[in-house]
Design a binder for these strands. Structure first.
Length: 140
DNA sequence: GCCAACGTTGGC
DNA sequence: GCCAACGTTGGC
């Protein structure tokens, strides 16, 4: 499956992920987003989106663990996964590009701007890769 | 900096 | 259980 996760690059960016090599994607405190994490599986593919100043999809990452209780949470029901960087978009795919193309009208990133974890339809994943000059085949 | 969209909290 | 008040996120 394909997913998209958001991060404010001022807090934790794609470059931070590359520097760390691997990270625990934690801190999600929204039930809808939590439920998506719950459905994640090892080896699922992630698009990493920079909110705020960038507003662009900047890279592809991979989930390397099953979901587990978020170690940073006070409550037991919040979940996290471990992820590793896979490929950087040489040309980030911006939110405005997605909106302008008109083909992403029901993509949660466009429709529900505050959701921080969301599933990505394979067709959308392909289109986004192509817009970012990346061959999608190796991830399908 | 503003505001829309949500989520949460607390009074009733 | 409803809703007003408030806080947060994120796009513009």
């Amino acid at each position: 499956m394909f997913w998209l996760v958001k991060t404010d690059p001022e807090t934790y960016s794609w470059d931070s992920l590359v520097r760390d090599g691997k990270t625990v994607w934690d801190g999600v405190r929204n039930f809808q987003a939590r439920n998506f994490i719950k459905a994640m599986k090892q080896n699922d593919i992630l698009l990493v989106y920079h909110s705020q100043n960038d507003k662009a999809i900047v890279g592809i990452a991979k989930i390397v663990s099953e979901p587990f209780p978020d170690p940073a949470a006070n409550e037991p029901y919040w979940l996290a996964v471990e992820i590793i960087p896979v490929k950087k978009f040489l040309k980030p795919v911006t939110l405005s590009q997605l909106k302008k193309s008109g083909e992403f009208a029901d993509f949660p990133l466009v429709r529900q701007s505050r959701l921080s974890v969301m599933p990505v339809e394979p067709e959308y994943f392909k289109k986004i890769c192509i817009m970012g000059n990346i061959q999608p085949e190796e991830f399908l």
